[in-house]
Simulated scan of single mutants.
Amino acid sequence: MATLKDVALEARVSVTTVSHVVNATRHVSPAVRERVELAIRALGYVPNAMARSLKSNTTSTLGMLIPNCSNPYFAEIVRIVEDRCFGAGYTLVLCNTDDEPNRQSVYLQVLAERRIDGLIVVSTGPADDDSLVRQLHGLRVPTVLLDREIADPACDLVETAHMQGGLLAARHLLSLGHRRIACIGGPVGVAPSEQRIEGWRLALAEAGATPDTAHADALLWRGSFTSQSGYEAMHAILRTADRPSAVFACNDLMAIGALRAAHESGVHVPDEISIVGFDDIELSAYTSPPLTTVAQPKERIGALAVDMLLERVGGQRRDARKVVLQPELCVRGSTARHASFREAAVPAPVAAPSTTSSRKSRIP
């Protein structure tokens, strides 16, 4: 492996000059810089990242924690974040906590030992987790919270207006004539799930579809943001005596599980039951039928998280910033008018023309 000294010999300059070119620590004439860069490429020299980090007190490395790498929503966000990091000259270290608070704690310690310059966190556990707040303060690096807010005023935050998304989903179903609308929520205490459920409740209350919270909770099932949990919840919903005509699942994976359960039960979507998801993962456009969903602006979420973090890393901003983006409803084939609406919309039959009409038939 080529060394700094090898590059200096190849370029016919001093080791100090090569160091200045590599680390951009002093002006070097264009002619000398070109010789050094040619030598670096010819020898395949790779600068020692550890040595450079010790000199600059930075590592050009960012960390990211996500709860579940098998969830396509997080996978799509990670791809956007990684692309943005790469374009800015940063390496991303990704850790999957598997929704385990203890694992999250261990990974935060690992990232601290790697001397990352900044951190993006999609938290695991409830929003009021004091242990996570204490550990983030101990890291002493700029931190951006993504998707899930926690009680830490020192962190930046970028997320979607989850309650507004729940409102969009439920109002869409109400506009189609559905009155009995079930909800498959996520884990108890996880902020995005609770906020989406709150939006669903509020929309039903606005429309007078449920007279009080107790009646709304009778239509609430819980899942774990996985396809399996949506599948199991939907089977339970379909077994109820007073079956709802529509279901709002608080993420697309649970909605996809619900679609399969309906298919297995011989319940046609959307003619017999309508289903709405949340996230707009790429797969949602390819289900059968294609899934109506609340779209999160993933490109903007990922790009903003990196940009906000680099502002803090570069010292351009010190005060915490909070950005809440608006979701959009993406209507596809998994929702349709309630049967009563469809019947009301059927036009009266047209009378057959009289056989005694005076109009003559045209014979070709």
Rank of each mutant, 00 (worst) to 15 (best):
Q316K: 15
S274Y: 10
N251W: 00
L54K: 10
G277Q: 10
V247P: 04
H27L: 13
R196S: 02
A241V: 10
A170C: 14
A339T: 05
L108F: 12
P327F: 11
Q109I: 01
L325A: 00
Y45R: 05
K5M: 14
R134L: 14
I275A: 04
E10A: 15
T293G: 11
V276A: 13
V133E: 06
D217I: 09
A205Y: 11
A75F: 03
D99V: 06
D156H: 07
N71L: 10
L119Q: 12
A241F: 03
D217T: 12
L111Y: 06
A295D: 03
P289V: 15
A218V: 00
M1Q: 10
R359D: 04
L119H: 08
L173H: 00
S227N: 06
G118D: 07
A214W: 04
I184V: 14
G87S: 11
L176S: 14
A344S: 15
A11Y: 11
R103M: 13
L54G: 10
G186I: 10
A203N: 02
S227E: 13
T292C: 15
E232M: 05
R342T: 11
A151R: 09
L119M: 07
T61L: 11
A261N: 14
D130N: 06
V141M: 01
P270F: 02
P244R: 06
S245V: 12
V141Y: 04
E232A: 08
L54Q: 09
A24E: 09
V331K: 02
F341K: 09
G166T: 07
N71M: 06
I181S: 01
L253Y: 02
G257I: 12
L167I: 05
L176I: 13
A241E: 14
G186Q: 07
R140S: 10
C183N: 05
R312G: 03
P347D: 12
R115F: 00
Q164L: 07
G230K: 08
A209C: 04
A169V: 02
T16R: 12
T124Y: 04
G87E: 08
F278R: 09
V22H: 07
H338K: 05
Q195K: 13
L204S: 09
R239Q: 15
E343N: 00
V110F: 13
R84F: 00
W200C: 05
N68W: 00
D117F: 00
Q228F: 07
P290L: 03
A151N: 12
A169S: 03
A182W: 03
